[in-house]
Amino acid sequence: MENETGALSRVAGLFSARGYNIESLTVAPTEDPSLSRMTVVTSGSEEIIEQITKQLNKLIDVVKLVNLSEDEHIEREMALIKVKAVGEAREEYKRLADIFNGRIIDVTEASYTIELTDSGDKIVEFIAAINADQIIEIVRSGVSGIARGEKSLHA
């Protein structure tokens, strides 16, 4: 969409005004600085998704819209997970981070911060593998998506 002030609030406003779900929303400028790209994760019946698509297309700031889930695509989300890490747990979290291809990016005597970049599902799995009372804080970026293969939003 056009990289204009207000474009984001038009999208957010549309979702709240029409009562659609937003599970996550990410937005940042693209290789063309006059455009920004937004990935919205939402859910609903086929009819609702059709309406969401049509309503978003109607926004003047939206240049192009694709429903990535209609085709093969890649989703990525980053999570930063801060856990209590003392004693045996320190080894255990290291192993767990390895299995999930995560990285420990900050360490103190009593805590680790683990970075994990993967699909939303994998992140949920990782979080589920940690004992809830060991979690200090979690930050998730929301999902960014892109089509597989040579296809792009431009063509």
Binding site: E47, E50, K54, N57, K58
Partner: peptide, 11 residues
């Protein structure tokens, strides 16, 4: 003229 009017309330 507006696609979002079509099949909004009635298929």
């Amino acid at each position: 003229i507006d696609p979002s009017s079509i099949s909004k309330n009635v298929k």
